Amino acid sequence: TDVTFHVNGRNLHLKGADEELLRRIEELIRRGADIEELEKAVKEWEK
C-alpha cells in the first residue's frame, strides 16, 4: 500500500506499507507524535 500522511505541514510518504505499519503510524499520530517519531517508526519497520 502506498499512502501519504500529512503531519504538521510535512508529508510522510510510505511505499509498500503493510497493515501493521499503518496501524502503528495512526496510533502515533493519535498520541500527537511529531514527524521525526513517525520517520523513526518507519525506519524500524523497514529493517
Rank of each mutant, 00 (worst) to 15 (best):
G9I: 02
E26H: 13
E20H: 12
E46F: 13
G9F: 03
D18E: 07
L21R: 01
E44D: 11
K47R: 13
A33E: 06
V7C: 09
E39G: 05
H13K: 08
V3D: 04
I29W: 13
R31H: 10
N11T: 15
E37C: 07
L28P: 00
E19K: 13
K15T: 07
K15H: 09
G16N: 14
L12D: 00
I25C: 07
A17E: 02
G9W: 03
D34H: 07
E39P: 00
R10I: 12
R31N: 09
E19C: 10
N8V: 01
D34I: 07
D18A: 11
F5T: 04
E46Y: 15
R10S: 12
L12I: 07
W45P: 02
R31T: 07
T1N: 10
G9H: 02
L28I: 03
A17Y: 06
I29F: 10
E20V: 13
K15N: 05
E27L: 15
K43G: 09
D2K: 04
H6R: 09
E26T: 14
K43F: 13
R24E: 07
I25A: 02
V7F: 05
L21W: 03
N11L: 15
L22H: 03
F5D: 05
K40A: 12
G16W: 06
K15P: 03
E26D: 06
I29P: 00
E39N: 06
K47F: 13
E26I: 15
V3I: 12
D34K: 07
T1C: 11
L22M: 07
H13D: 03
R10Q: 14
E36L: 07
N8F: 03
W45K: 03
V7D: 03
L38Y: 01
L21I: 14
V42C: 04
G16L: 05
D2T: 08
V3K: 11
E19R: 14
N11P: 15
L38C: 10
K40R: 12
G32E: 04
L12V: 02
E26W: 15
V42R: 02
K40V: 12
K15D: 03
V3C: 14
E26P: 03
H6S: 08
R23C: 05
R24H: 12
L14G: 00
T1S: 10
I35N: 02
R24K: 08
K40H: 11
G32W: 02
E37D: 11
V42M: 05
E27R: 13
D34F: 08
L38G: 00
R10L: 09
I29E: 00
N8R: 06
G9K: 01
W45E: 03
G9L: 02
W45H: 10
N8W: 02
K47H: 11
E36S: 06
L21P: 00
N11Q: 14
I25W: 01
W45L: 03
E26C: 15
F5H: 08
A33N: 06
E37I: 10
L14S: 00
I29H: 04
I35T: 02
R30H: 09
L22W: 03
E36A: 07
G16S: 08
L21D: 01
A17S: 04
L28C: 03
L21N: 01
L21T: 08
E37W: 06
L28W: 08
V42Q: 03
R30F: 10
E36C: 06
I29C: 03
N8Q: 06
L22S: 02
L38Q: 00
T4A: 04
V7T: 02
G9D: 05
E46M: 13
K15L: 05
G16F: 06
E26G: 12
L38F: 03
K47P: 10
K47G: 12
E46Q: 13
E27G: 12
N11S: 15
D2H: 05
A33V: 07
E20P: 11
I35F: 14
L28R: 04
L21F: 07
F5P: 03
A33M: 10
H6A: 05
R10T: 12
I25S: 00
V3H: 14
V42S: 03
V3E: 04
I29M: 06
F5N: 06
